[in-house]
Amino acid sequence: MFPLRLAIQSILKEFWINLLTVLSIGALLMMLFAVGTIVYNIEIMTRRLPERLSILVFLKDHTPEGDLKVIEARFKSEPLVRSVEFISKDKAMNNLKKTFKEDDFILKGITDNPLSDSFEIRLKGNNLSVNDVKGFIDKIRALKNVDDVEHGGKLLESVYAFKQGLRVLGIFTGVIFATAVIFICYSTVRLLFYRRLDEIEIYRLLGATKAFVRAPFFIEGAVIGFIGGVLGTILLWILNNYLIGRIMVNIPVFSFISVPVGSLYFMPALGFVLGLSGVGFALGRLKY
């Protein structure tokens, strides 16, 4: 009970230092979550990418009708395939004509259809690895009657590499921000500790245990971290509602952005833990 009272007294007495600390922690935690949100959003945006990619399998000329059926069945039996569509060379020509619309004079001189029959394969979404896709494409290439395969594997590969890099960067920044929060708590507690050193010495002479002396600092660190977290939550909430919610909705790219609102409540808990660790580091090696 008494340590709690000491902690509250200290928070009120050193109001400005504590306020500054809370503000810094709030800002840092908010940035930490902003980075998290960015990573999270890119994760979501790219999750369904393989689904959008299609693989075009061009067949050799004069592939027998029977073989077509066999190949199609073969594709459909693959677990990562979502749909298979046969596009005959005539249909391909029609599509081409449609694409050119009024400019179809380009195609006027062509009498013999130079296009080939093809299959358009769409893959199931959700976290297909690049290797899965590559392996699948190699399998297709090896099939009889297949002339060429066109696919977005390269794109997928670079997007995945980008995502990987972003994840690492996110974790890296997260660790840096978290460390900064710990460090801020650490230096505030150190400062408060040295300010109260005379007082602490008297406590010790009267028979106070180390735990008794430390308890108020731990409470203070935890409270400051927690309030910092609440502040960060509020800041991010405001940012989400007013900035992203009202203004950026009209800008197409930003309209996709979704803040993982549920995890916002996690922020005060994180502040709490980081605050406590800051105090732990600050007092851990002190002799008194």
Binding site: I202, R204, L205, L206, G207, T209
Partner: peptide, 17 residues
């Protein structure tokens, strides 16, 4: 701390807060 709780000290320089 246990020892100190068994000893009451009147400090020459008081050591009041």
């Amino acid at each position: 701390p246990l020892l100190r709780r068994n000893i009451g000290v009147v400090f020459q320089d008081f050591k009041l807060l």
